[in-house]
């Protein structure tokens, strides 16, 4: 780690450490019971207690998140391309998508489970449903935010529509899509957990629900910690991809 990176991360690390310390020390002094607010040590102990089959739960939830993320990404890009490519498609799709997006998707979750039963797939679909809309919008915007003059160049040189699309529109849209995928990464986590809350036989969301009914709060916190590890991993991966694939873009 270079000095610059050190200087950048030290303040947040110090804050994080201080908060952990306060969290560990203060609740016992206030006589707050562990089932209400377990300290960080208890949480870490629960998170590393492998009599709970963490790896199985982590696997299921990760699968749901990644599947939902991939579905949202692929579906969102496809819809965005359709909207940008054809005015008719845009007029047909946009009002419909706006309606779908304004639905509280969390409320649709029980229906998905009713139709598709328990399991990984319905939770993937809920994750995808929550995360796909920003991808559609950003793809369409990125594909159409092109200088008119650049399109004039295409016309002057007799370039067919697909060529302008491949050479100019698609690369222009890439940073927009990647920045939407960061939002989708977070939304997919929410979707997967919501699905597991409603009904599931495995997964970190189910662990939280079970721990809550048993008042085993340290385990609930531990599940939460594992969820945020997965979420951070996915978010970081998308951020790295954005830096690698669209280094010209200004988005952080």
């Amino acid at each position: 780690m270079t000095r610059g990176a050190l200087r950048r991360y030290v303040p947040s690390l110090v804050l994080f450490g201080a908060l952990l310390l306060i969290w560990q020390v203060v609740p016992p002094l206030l006589r707050i019971r562990e089932y209400l607010l377990p300290g960080p040590v208890a949480v870490v102990r629960a998170a590393l207690n492998f009599s709970i089959p963490w790896h199985a739960h982590i696997w299921v939830t990760t699968l749901e998140i990644l599947g939902g993320f991939a579905l949202a990404g692929a579906g969102g890009v496809a819809l965005g391309v359709a909207i940008a490519w054809s005015g008719t498609a845009a007029r047909a799709l946009v009002p419909f998508l706006v309606v779908v997006n304004t639905l509280p998707k969390v409320a649709v979750a029980p229906l998905f489970l009713l139709w598709l039963g328990y399991g990984v797939v319905p939770n993937m679909l809920i994750a995808a449903l929550i995360g796909f809309f920003p991808v559609v919008i950003n793809t369409a915007v990125g594909l159409t935010q092109i200088d008119e003059e650049l399109l004039d160049l295409g016309r002057v040189f007799g370039a067919p529509k697909w060529k302008v699309f491949v050479k100019i529109r698609l690369p222009n849209a890439l940073p927009y899509v990647l920045s939407a995928l960061k939002i989708t990464a977070t939304a997919a986590v929410v979707g997967a957990i919501v699905g597991e809350f409603v009904a599931s036989q495995a997964g970190l969301g189910m662990v939280i629900v079970n721990a809550q009914t048993n008042l085993n709060t340290p385990v609930a916190f531990a599940a939460l910690a594992w969820i945020s590890v997965i979420g951070l991993g996915l978010y970081g991966a998308v951020g790295l991809a954005a830096r690698a694939w669209a280094p010209w873009a200004d988005t952080p």
Binding site: L153, G154, F157, L174
Partner: peptide, 20 residues
């Protein structure tokens, strides 16, 4: 209106690509 993701020489070559 250069393409931000292309190196300068690739930008200069754009007309050739557009013209096939």
């Amino acid at each position: 209106i250069l393409l931000k993701w292309r190196r300068i020489v690739e930008n200069v070559l754009l007309p050739a690509e557009l013209a096939g």
